[in-house]
Amino acid sequence: MARSIIFGRYSPGKSPIHRMDPRLKLTAVLVAMVVILMSNTYPALAVAAAFVIGFYFVARIPASTALKSIAPLLFIVVLTALLNLFFVQGGTVYAQLGPLVISQEGVHFAIFLSLRLTLLLCMASLLTLTTTTLDLTDALEAMLKPFARFGFPAHEFAMVMGIALRFLPQFADELHTIRQAQLSRGAKITANPFKGGLSGLSSLMVPLFTSAFRHAETLSAGMDARCYHGGSGRTRLDPLTFTRLDVAGLVAIAAMAVCVVAAGMFHM
């Protein structure tokens, strides 16, 4: 069984953040990410970090879970840091090795940008950690709805996304099983075409695709059987509603924006 922790896998809970309306949560997270992107000084970043930590605290998600959820994407942070370290020049030169120069500006940018990126990842991860994929696609659908007027298939788009997300872990599991089965038959599974890698790969990909088609057929039959006919005229069992909780969330995000901007100005 493939048990790798997927970026921002839903972590069940009943915290206020879990219970917030997904539409508002999605908007709030987008706003928070913009705020983080706009914070250009260390004090501003520190204030933003304090808010993010506060959000995680309210969501009752332990630091270890939070870190695990962003760990697979940390390579982006490291890459960004390295690129900045070597390619941004200016100020005092600390070390020089041939064409590689480590300067004051480079170090500053490397640290600053990796902190900011980590915060961004934490914020994005908070959304998926506290929201089920079903809620998330509902929120997306609601937010895309205005574009339906111009012929954009908002409902279908959200449905396709929801189904894709739903089947990702399943296909990961199935790929794992297929791989084990072919290994049992002595398959050499490598990408090297000179070592029979291609036939090895087709022994994985063909069963995976047939399985995808099989699931698609079963799923479409199941949807037909329950009279699914697309988005028009569909009502919801649990209509999304805004509550006082969402007002509180809105206030928290507004406070974050104001505080971060203020902290940025203070430094100037």
Binding site: E174, T177, I178, Q180, A181, Q182, L183, S184, R185, G186, S202, S203, L204, M205, V206, P207, T210, S211
Partner: peptide, 18 residues
């Protein structure tokens, strides 16, 4: 060992590919 110990998985027909 895999030549001597054959393993037939659950629903082995799902692993057909050729």
């Amino acid at each position: 060992v895999r030549a001597n110990v054959g393993l037939v998985f659950q629903y082995p027909e799902h692993q057909l590919f050729a």
